[in-house]
């Protein structure tokens, strides 16, 4: 870069980052669950396997609202889904706006689900902004559980709750904890998938972490 070049704008640096492929916009994901009765054993094992053990496992208590934005010209087109997440246990943290793309399961040889994922931290005005945009609330839920780290990998063990309308205590979705193993990485870093498989194998037979296509599952149960 020469000294007399035009000042670099945010768009410039963004497109440069895109070109250099350094934006971690791909999520590599494996999912599974563990029964409430066995969650202690799993947490114990994770504490042995993961990096952040000396401080004890990190807990989180989040609420997520999923918004949809339909294209008015194409009613049949699937709506754009946007997720807003907020920490209930840390009120001063920003809201998280997240776009998750279609999960790509690939063939048998691909070790994990890959989907595009964009995250951004937002202020509390976000909900109003989305409403003004024409977004509708599709559903909401809260997740409460534990987060572990192992290198680049993130492991969450969390209970998913349905949010009740009339100040009743939140109702758990099932008698199990959702277990997710994920890594955010730039495009084309498929080697991490193998690492994740290897890690997932260490949690067997306690938890079976797999590529799960919720789209297909959803259709099966609806039709």
């Amino acid at each position: 870069m020469s000294a007399n070049a035009a000042p670099i704008t945010a768009t410039d640096s963004l497109s440069q980052a895109l070109k250099a492929n350094i934006i971690p916009n791909q999520e590599y994901l494996l999912q599974g669950s563990v029964l409430d009765s066995a969650v202690e054993v799993l947490l114990h094992r994770l504490r042995g396997l993961c990096d952040n053990v000396d401080a004890g496992p990190e807990t989180f208590d989040d609420q997520e609202v999923c918004f949809s934005l339909r294209d008015p010209n194409h009613h049949q087109a699937p709506p754009l889904m946007l997720r807003v997440r907020k920490a209930l246990d840390a009120r001063d943290m920003p809201f998280q706006l997240r776009y998750i793309g279609q999960p790509d399961l690939g063939d048998k040889n691909r070790p994990t689900v890959v989907r595009s994922s964009l995250d951004i931290a937002c202020s509390g005005m976000l909900i109003e902004f989305l409403n003004e945009l024409g977004c509708r609330i599709e559903f909401e839920y809260s997740v409460k559980g534990y987060m572990f780290r192992k290198g680049r990998m993130k492991i969450t063990v969390a209970k998913v709750f349905k949010i009740s309308q009339n100040s009743m205590p939140p109702e758990p979705i099932s008698q199990s904890y959702l277990v997710e193993l994920s890594v955010l990485a730039p495009q084309g870093q498929d080697a991490i998938g193998e690492d994740m498989r290897a890690f997932a194998d260490q949690l067997r037979p306690l938890v079976q972490l797999d590529k799960i296509d919720y789209k297909r599952l959803g259709h099966m149960s609806v039709s």
Partner: peptide, 25 residues
Amino acid sequence: MQPTHNIADTHALVTAVGTGKGLRP
């Protein structure tokens, strides 16, 4: 003797988080 995970639960949780099934009041 004691299974530690349940495929049906996994599917229920993943669909709930992914598509909101069972979360829309």
